[in-house]
Design a protein around this nucleic acid. Structure first.
Lengths: 344, 344
DNA sequence: CTGAAAGCGCTTACAG
DNA sequence: CTGAAAGCGCTTACAG
């Protein structure tokens, strides 16, 4: 196809179409001001030659890499998997590509690892997942070399830095409301670790729901946990061995809810017959146990799609002071009602 | 730093170090034949300027992109997550970057999606995971535009195409041996779907182990399954309602083993007290249920590391006909013994 | 052991 | 609406 036998270049297309390379470039980049017949002729040749502009040349000349970086430190394979699913699909639709890099949140050479990626690849933007999106060192490194970022579910929003998240408070409120609507009154909460903001948010939602229904908040029914299976099991043992045990437990995440299931099984308590259990996250395991867990699904893939869009299209930067406008997006979650909850 | 205020370029480094850009290039690419004092001087400037060669320029001039592509169609988030973990780390060590693309195995524009990635990015190599690594269309597209590939756990090896896998037969044999050594004699197998080669391999290993111990292979104890939770639960109900039920069940994957656990629980059978259960895969869920599953861990991250190495370093292509030598690598798996198996 | 020149394949100003 | 020129920042031959 090409003059020298390799893949066709923009020169080959231009020659074949009888136009200048500049015109080919205009057509390919959807620039306005090209006569339709010219455009058609060019596109026909592009098609025939199966021509694709080379990213490295575009990047070098144009200063855009069409690369989006995804930085993560495996919080859970499922989370990253969904992020990627959403991000790669949206990238493809927009003509971008996703480069992933897994870092250790406490690696000594974190800064260098980031520099290496950013300075070598010059991604047009970066998506950060927890806990990296809350790491000051990471944020500083990226800000210094001017790479636009979007934070996914950060602990707290940062003024001027775009983010996407779900509403943990509201979701926890909804799932607690579900338990209440099922007739439960003695509802226990297994909390998350205090150093994660999601813990406080979910607890807040839980308390909100109880108060809205005039149900007393019993501190005895709020057990600490650490988002692990074991901590959930231990907390459940505490709760279920009380003289007046709860009829429902809301665990702040699925792993702990699985621990509750295990504890109930040990104690010979039937779920959901004698105890309703709800989790949070819709982890892959949630649907693979018996009874399948009622839980909340985070819109992770959608958050990732949104993050890509914010990076590619930019965001309104002309906002009044204090008006973060579209900078911090909150996406709708989904209540997933399965077999672990029942009227009680 | 730079002459024009942007990031420093090779010209800035050369000027500062008092050498030609060619010498800087030599140092950065570890080419031999540079005087040590010259090398040191260059490296010092590189350090001071925090200079990193721009990938797009290197790629355009040198014909190598330092990009490895990972093509997948979510077989399971856990698998892809481990692949990525291993691949990104090894890429970083070798100065490469990982670009991921999630495809649909039966997408109508599969060919275009691949062309788009390959022709635009020109990755130096591509890693394919199941089921894409067994898709003739995918393989043909990649072969046509000359992109080197490594197949991860393909159904069957292809002559001339590098692959990395584990030994399913041997692993199944080992886990069956474990059950036998625990004293079990009536051991059931829940098979995988016939269209996946892993199913046959795991069954083969199961049979091998029984025969090696002179235990009769009872066809009644080999139930069909389809690698899903439900199929495992159904098969277990069949097996456990027999007059003479098995004392151990080897499910060909973890999802089905979880189904067995659910079935046993329904039937009031204690695991591992009255029934031992073993799975295969070491899925994230395997450790998050009670009792935690005894299973086999695939060396997924290691396979990914190996795949990257095969792509970066190439493989011996000067082999005698028929001798695939290092082209098809088999990595060691790991038996993970947990709580679901016990003497019986 | 070191360097000057050409070129990779695009896009960006700048003209017309 | 279209094009000729310059240049992005490197590496590849080719010299010396």
């Amino acid at each position: 196809m090409s003059a020298r036998g390799g893949s066709p270049t923009i020169v080959d297309v231009a020659r074949e179409a009888g136009v200048s390379i500049k015109t080919v470039s205009r057509v390919l980049n959807h620039e306005p001001g090209v006569h339709e017949s010219t455009r058609d002729a060019v596109l026909k040749v592009v098609e025939a030659l199966r021509y694709r502009p080379k990213q490295s040349a575009r990047s070098l000349a144009g200063g855009r890499s069409f690369l989006i970086g995804l930085l993560y430190y495996d919080p859970s394979a499922a989370f990253v998997g969904s992020v990627q699913q959403g991000a790669t699909v949206r990238c493809r639709e927009l003509g971008y590509h996703l480069v992933v890099e897994s870092l250790h949140n406490d690696a000594p050479d974190l800064r260098q690892q980031i520099d290496r990626m950013v300075l070598a690849l010059r991604p047009d933007g970066m998506i950060l997942t927890p806990p990296l999106c809350d790491n000051p060192e990471v944020l500083a490194a990226l800000r210094e070399n001017g790479t636009p970022c979007v934070l996914m579910s950060p602990e707290r929003d940062i003024v001027g830095v775009p983010s996407v998240r779900m509403d943990d408070v509201h979701a926890a409120e909804e799932i607690t409301n579900l338990l209440i609507s099922l007739g439960h009154r003695r509802i226990a909460l297994i909390k998350g670790p205090p150093d994660q903001s999601a813990s406080a948010a979910r607890q807040q939602g839980f308390v909100n729901a109880l108060q809205a229904h005039d149900i007393a908040v019993d501190p005895e029914l709020m057990q600490p946990g650490s988002f692990t299976f074991d901590s959930g099991r231990d907390a459940a043992h505490q709760l279920l061995s009380r003289r007046q045990r709860p009829t429902a437990v809301f665990a702040s995440n699925d792993d702990m809810a699985l621990g509750v299931l295990a504890a109930a099984q040990r104690l010979g308590l039937s779920v959901p017959g004698e105890l309703s259990v709800a989790g949070f996250d819709d982890s892959p395991t949630a649907a693979l146990v018996w009874p399948a867990l009622t839980t909340v699904r985070q819109p992770v893939a959608e958050m990732a799609r949104t993050a890509v869009e914010m990076l590619v299209f930019g965001h309104k930067s002309e906002l009044a002071p204090g008006d973060d406008g579209e900078l911090h997006k909150v996406l709708a979650h989904e209540l997933v009602v399965r077999d672990s909850t029942r009227a009680g």
